[in-house]
Design a protein around this nucleic acid. Sequence first.
DNA 1: ATTCTTATCTTGACATTGTCAAGATTTTCA
DNA 2: TGAAAATCTTGACAATGTCAAGATAAGAAT
Lengths: 197, 197
Amino acid sequence: MKFIMAREKRSYHHGGLREALVGAGTAILEKHGLADLSLRAIARAAGVSHAALTHHFETLADLLAEIAARGFERFVTQLARKSEGSATPETKLGAMSRAYVGFALENPAVYELMFRQGSKDLDSAHLDQAAGAAWRQLEDAVAAIDPENAQQRAAFVWSAVHGLATLLIDKRFPPSVDVHGLIDANAARIAKAVGAN
Amino acid sequence: MKFIMAREKRSYHHGGLREALVGAGTAILEKHGLADLSLRAIARAAGVSHAALTHHFETLADLLAEIAARGFERFVTQLARKSEGSATPETKLGAMSRAYVGFALENPAVYELMFRQGSKDLDSAHLDQAAGAAWRQLEDAVAAIDPENAQQRAAFVWSAVHGLATLLIDKRFPPSVDVHGLIDANAARIAKAVGAN
DNA sequence: ATTCTTATCTTGACATTGTCAAGATTTTCA
DNA sequence: TGAAAATCTTGACAATGTCAAGATAAGAAT
């Protein structure tokens, strides 16, 4: 999709600034990382003054929350797409586990923003809703194998994939490990620990 | 231990500023969180000007790296203490899994600094050494159960405990879940996925 | 003992950040 | 057509990390 990033014809009113801000923020996030994602950099990229956000987002955190929410939506879509058509609930959970880590590695900065809000307390109705949908998607996949204790088992799955994703993004493992092998083994062990027995 | 936090007798030279800075930083981290851990706040707490760090740490990141390194050392000590005297390698790994998450929940800000360096690129020889020791401790515990594929199995264990720790710290689970039950179940499933078979 | 050198700390400046208030401009719509 | 609301800009503010230049103390050398 295409955003109006910078105006050639300088009209006082932008027209679609809210979407442009989200687009500019996402672009900076993917190109330069979370550290360089400042309010003023976003405003510059959108071709607008540094105080123009106020009327669309109360604060920077609200804009970041919106970007994170859209990240969760893409996340849910991608996991659904990569796990559809699985033969069994077990293979579906395996596909989701791999797709989870895959999304994080393909979108490390967005993933960082989605989870590692850290200091900035991201919160918005949209973000809560999108993150909730992601959680439900995972819990449903676990319950499809065996509905008993699904919430706790889903929590384990989430821990294992989220932990692997963040450790890989931060390059926390010895350089000798095979990343692809790690992702597959992770999914297999998750299935072993949480599958029906 | 006790640090010289603020000087009553104003002598131009502090005496033990390096240790005082580490102590003041740790105190702020535990009392107010990572977000409030600024260079100038540390200097104020140590009763010293904002530019006094230069001669002890090249940059703020170096001071944070030192704090993180000491966090890893406490971490290793605590895991060793809480898992010593286990009857079998399996129960030892279980004790370590629980102790891992326990440390993170008892020291959330320090744990955040240790792992979630995020934007600030923490790195120092001391930090690398301390973090490496932590990794080796975990890998040894896994290898004691079964030496085959120990590195990959240890990576799975680390993912599961680290993921659970961070998700708990960030309160990412539905409020209905029982935290203590989650920690125990996590350890049990880890053993199931990674234990000898 | 006195001087020189080095280590340590302070002061002041700089660019950058997010937010706020006040003014300028455009659109809406009554 | 004109008043009200929405939108954007300018300028200020405090706070941040880093750097340069100067002040002070401690230690070594003669």
